[in-house]
Design a binder for these strands. Structure first.
Lengths: 252, 252
DNA sequence: TGAGAAAAGTTGGCTGTACAACTTGAGCCA
DNA sequence: TGGCTCAAGTTGTACAGCCAACTTTTCTCA
């Protein structure tokens, strides 16, 4: 089996999924074409059908292939879905699209958490949190304002970083903080005076807001963030299907 | 096993997933509490561990529980994820949040597809499509403008409906059209004159745009739609994790 | 008492098997 | 030609078992 670039580590079904993804994106089966049967793939890669199904499940969830009882799988498209981290980290995302990420910490404070923050971060009333305000840039152009609340322990690590550190999530990862789950909500808000000043837009102008709550594998909240993007700089895409649905629409 | 309401049909792991979801939402394990082990659940429900794992995989993807090697699963939250159809169909969504959906067809045309439309719907150049413009309301208040392109065959069914039919996707489903996959993209646009007139907002004002491309189980495109919501009426939420990622952020 | 080692418990990953449900295509017959 | 039946092919569901990797608890010993 050709060990494809980037997919050489980890479980067999993940490497297989990476392999198949590369093959699909290289057009090996054509757009709208049909994949070999699970049995064939199992023989071809020397694994069991169960493992093949796990790999195909990943591609299915990412919207690369369909699946339907009775007929072979069909190539839906070559939609490149980003990794969890490219969605979590502005820096990783910027790099993945070939842009130069930038960040400047405007303000950082350690203070008492208000009731809403306590609830979102699962903290006891009276806990302290770190509040961080940052301006994010793409190729030096201001794109987004980031307001993040961290629990005390995590925030302390952030506070030790340089004020102009580009990434905050990467140093955290290096210190053993593991991000595992996140919930993102996207809607529209009006620019406050502070937003307008930093982003260089009109006060009261529209911004795309992404609120994010991330947790570690044990379910402990790690950050609660509100990002505000200038219009026209970003779009959020999600694939869903009858089989796997994680997206929902809410009354705004 | 208590067959929970609404989950009585289909595969065993789906019924089990529905059961567990109900139990979690009823607080049987507490917020942040730990689930019984897979083995215990298997015995309790009289199924194999593999089936339990499939059921838990569903809950995992929906962000209800975490999973982590070595320790029992933890209840993340009781986030109610909507079904695929509540996201696809404005009507279903409105009903699910207890509002009264409304729809008025402003315009419907059968015409030649332009190149972009051909590509999105996978049609040969020169194909005909149906173009539908609708105003959608929630409790009689205008909320959203919907512009949808249908392939000829599907569009013909739509054209036969009453102009003030509330739902379009439901009649299609009744006639055997099966929606299976969709890709949604959310960003911000400025209201055109037509948008402003229908929604009653200012021309050039901001709107939340959701573009959607839906396909059937074979991967054949069924509709390509662009919805424009008034600000403050809607928000889109997605859960993702290291294990399952289907959301991505794009340069706008 | 405290720290370290061992044991028990739990999920992740992989294999193999069997049958059910469904689609497709070939072949047959009117 | 047209429609029907039937067989082959394919994915979905479920079961059973095994070991690895990891976490938590318990126990032991200094």
């Amino acid at each position: 089996m050709a060990v494809a670039g980037g997919g050489a580590t980890g479980a067999r079904y993940r490497r297989l999924a990476a392999d198949l993804r590369e093959a699909i994106e290289a057009g090996a089966y054509g757009a709208g074409g049909r994949l070999p049967s699970e049995e064939k793939l199992a023989q071809q890669y020397g694994v069991s059908r169960g493992t093949v199904r796990q790999a195909l499940g990943v591609l299915r969830a990412n919207g690369l292939v369909t699946s339907r009882r009775g007929t072979r799988r069909v190539v839906l498209g070559t939609a490149r879905t980003q990794s969890f981290f490219e969605l979590l980290s502005f820096t990783r995302w910027a790099r993945s699209i070939g842009e130069e990420p930038g960040g400047r910490t405007i303000d950082i404070e350690r203070r008492l958490a208000d009731p809403l923050e306590c609830e979102q971060l699962g903290l006891a009333p009276g806990s302290k949190v770190y509040w961080v305000l940052r301006l994010r840039t793409l190729s030096r152009v201001p794109i987004m304002i980031e307001r993040t609340i961290y629990p005390e322990q995590i925030g302390a690590m952030i506070a030790r970083l340089e004020p102009d550190a580009i990434s905050h999530t990467e140093p955290l990862a290096e210190q053993g903080v593991v991000f595992a789950d996140a919930e993102h909500t996207v809607d529209l808000v009006w620019a406050a005076a502070e937003d307008a000043g930093l982003l260089g837009c009109a006060e009261g102008g529209p911004l795309i807001r992404e609120r994010r709550r991330a947790t570690d594998p044990a379910g402990t909240p790690l950050e609660w963030s509100e990002d505000r993007y200038l219009p026209g700089t970003v779009a959020f895409t999600v694939h869903n299907s009858v089989a796997t649905t994680a997206l929902s629409r809410r009354r705004g």
